[in-house]
Every structure is written in C-alpha cells, then in structure tokens.
Amino acid sequence: MEAYRGYYNERWPHNLSPQAVSLKEYFLNVYGAADGYDGGDPAGSGDYAVGLNARRTGWVQSTAPRHPSGTNWLLADRRGRLAAFAVVNQQAAVWLEAQPGADQWRGPFFLGGGPLAPNLAVSLTPDGRWQIFALRLSRLAPDGANAREIVLLEQSEPDGVFPGWITLGNPSAGDPQRDRHLGAPAVTRDGRGRLHLFVRNAGQGLHSRVQETDGSWGEWTDLRGHEFRRDSPRSPRRTAMWRCSPPVARASSTGRRATSTRRPAGHPASGSPSRPVPPRPSSSPAARS
C-alpha cells in the first residue's frame, strides 16, 4: 500500500498535468457534495466548505508520496542477479532473480524488522553483502510521544543469512516532540568504500552517520541545511562535493543497468496480486543462491 500526503499538499510545488488536475478536482468536488447527491442525512453528504472550490484549496495541483523512495530498492548482487526490496505489512521483504536476465524470481522472503515505514534504502558492500536500512516506527502514542529510529539489517557474509536488525538511533532521540520528525534514510558510498547514511532531522536539516571500511560507525553529524522535506533526502551522489539530488539509475559493476521500472510479480508496486505470506524469522536465508 502506498501512502500519500494529505492537506499539507497545498504547500508543495505543483507537479500534476492539467489533465490530472482536472480529474482530481472532479473527485474532490464530489467530496464537497458539488454533485448534488442526497445521502439521506439531514446534515448533508459532503464537505460543503469545499463545494466547487477544490482547486482553490491548493490540494488538487500536487500529489506527493508520504514516504518516497529512490532507485536503490532494485540492485544487482556480485553475480549480476537482481534483488528487489520492499516493505510488506510493515516488514522488509526481498525478491531474488534466479539467474541474471532470466526474468524468473523467487520470493518474497520476509526479513522482519517492523513496524517499518514503507520504503527502504539498500546498499551492497564491497565484499558483496546486502545492507538494508529502514525507518522504524518504534512507538506510536496518542499523547504525541512517538519514537522513530533508523535500523539496519546486514548480511553476515556474502550469500549468507541476516543475523538480525540493529538500531542506528535517531539524532533527536530522547525528545518526543522532535523524535517523530525523523526522515527516511538515504545511503551511498564514497570512493574509499565508506558508507554515508543521511536523514532529515527535526530541524528540517540533514544529519549523517558514516560507516568506515572496517564496519565501525561514527556518531551522528549535523550537516545543517534547512527546509528539507520530511521524506528522504533521496540518494545523494558523489561529485566534486557531496550534494543531495534526485535519484539516478546507475549501471552496476556487471554492466547491467538497474532501474526502478521492472518489478517482480507480487512486489507492492507491481500491480500484480500477492497472496499473504506469514512472516519468517529475520535469519531467513533470503540471499542464498
């Protein structure tokens, strides 16, 4: 299931075509009871404050996912086989290509970790191990004392099992009113093989943690900035300096281009049905050959 922004959409840049705006306006006008439908309730059957003014609210000109993802949900492993990652029923899942280019898939294999926000950030280590990063909704409370954290699932060895999720924390941990504003993770590697993790913080800037080549993690570093959206800063890319930019599909070391247009059957965004599968332990050998 994909979640989208609601009323706050009015404050975002317009990104829909005139045709899409007209269709969305039609449905919002129905919501505003502009179609004259009588539901039999004396109080009415719509939001009369909207009426025929749906376009004026600013809601119709944009559509934005609540937890947008980059392109690295689909990557090739060291053998050239594609692996597709997604969140299903609040837990991580992976589909594995049987052979490079065969268009035959195994899965989904469930990796646990929930409750997770809908999208994942994935990286392949230089020695061929999968790393899966997610935003975990650790605590949801009616009093606003919500807790969120970045979590990581990392293979113990290439083609091996996943021993279990670990937490990488939250730069605003301990402050319930700021904790909940944590954004989704984005990851990339620099030329030295170090992994850089980026998240939007409660101050609408960026924080980062770096994993060294020996596997150790540094502390959270405040990169400043302001007015970043609450979603992921997307996949940063390495240029002459670090910058956040829209995700770009890259060719893998095998020469195969991994893009986000091809989704295995049963993937939440593929449009094809998938029967419910009971959760499997996080040690499921999901990436074994």
Results as ranks from 00 to 15, higher is better:
R250T: 13
A269K: 09
I132Q: 00
P65I: 03
T213L: 02
A54E: 04
R189L: 10
A121E: 02
R229H: 12
M241P: 00
R5A: 03
D127Q: 11
S289E: 05
A249F: 14
A54F: 09
R136V: 04
A83K: 15
T261I: 06
Y4F: 12
V277D: 01
Q211C: 08
M1L: 10
A76C: 11
V161Q: 01
T261L: 02
S62E: 09
Q90N: 12
R55F: 03
L152Y: 12
G193K: 08
R11F: 11
P276K: 12
F27S: 06
H267T: 15
N119S: 03
S156H: 14
D143Y: 10
R148T: 02
W130E: 00
W59C: 14
A173I: 12
P163D: 05
Q204I: 01
A76M: 04
G6L: 07
S235H: 12
G6M: 07
N15I: 15
A102M: 09
F198L: 00
Y8E: 01
L120F: 07
I132S: 00
L74G: 05
A186N: 00
G183N: 01
W95A: 09
L195S: 12
R81D: 13
V161L: 05
R238H: 15
D77S: 07
L96D: 03
L195D: 05
F110D: 05
D222R: 06
G46H: 12
E2I: 13
D103E: 05
W73P: 02
T71Y: 03
P236G: 05
P279H: 07
R194N: 13
A34C: 07
D41N: 15
N72P: 13
P268A: 10
L168N: 03
D103G: 13
G255P: 10
H14E: 06
D77E: 06
R263A: 08
Y48T: 09
A186C: 08
R81Q: 15
R243I: 11
P42R: 11
G107P: 02
L75F: 14
A43V: 08
A202V: 02
E212F: 14
A93P: 07
P163V: 04
S245M: 07
P176F: 13
P158D: 02
A184D: 00
G58M: 11
Q131I: 02
R81I: 14
A173E: 08
N9A: 08
S208H: 04
L168H: 14
P247F: 14
R243D: 12
P281I: 04
H67Y: 11
A3E: 06
R192L: 14
P65E: 03
W242M: 00
A258Q: 10
R194I: 15
L197K: 10
L74E: 04
Y7V: 03
K24D: 06
H181L: 02
L153K: 04
G183S: 02
L82W: 08
A240W: 11
G39Y: 14
Y26F: 07
R243S: 10
Q19K: 13
W217D: 00
R55S: 01
H14T: 08
R11C: 08
Q177V: 10
Q104T: 09
S208A: 06
L195Q: 13
G193R: 15
R288W: 13
E25P: 02
L140A: 15
E227T: 10
D38L: 04
P185M: 07
K24M: 14
N72V: 12
L223E: 02
A83H: 11
R192H: 06
P285C: 06
D41T: 06
G174M: 06
S138E: 15
V88M: 06
D179W: 11
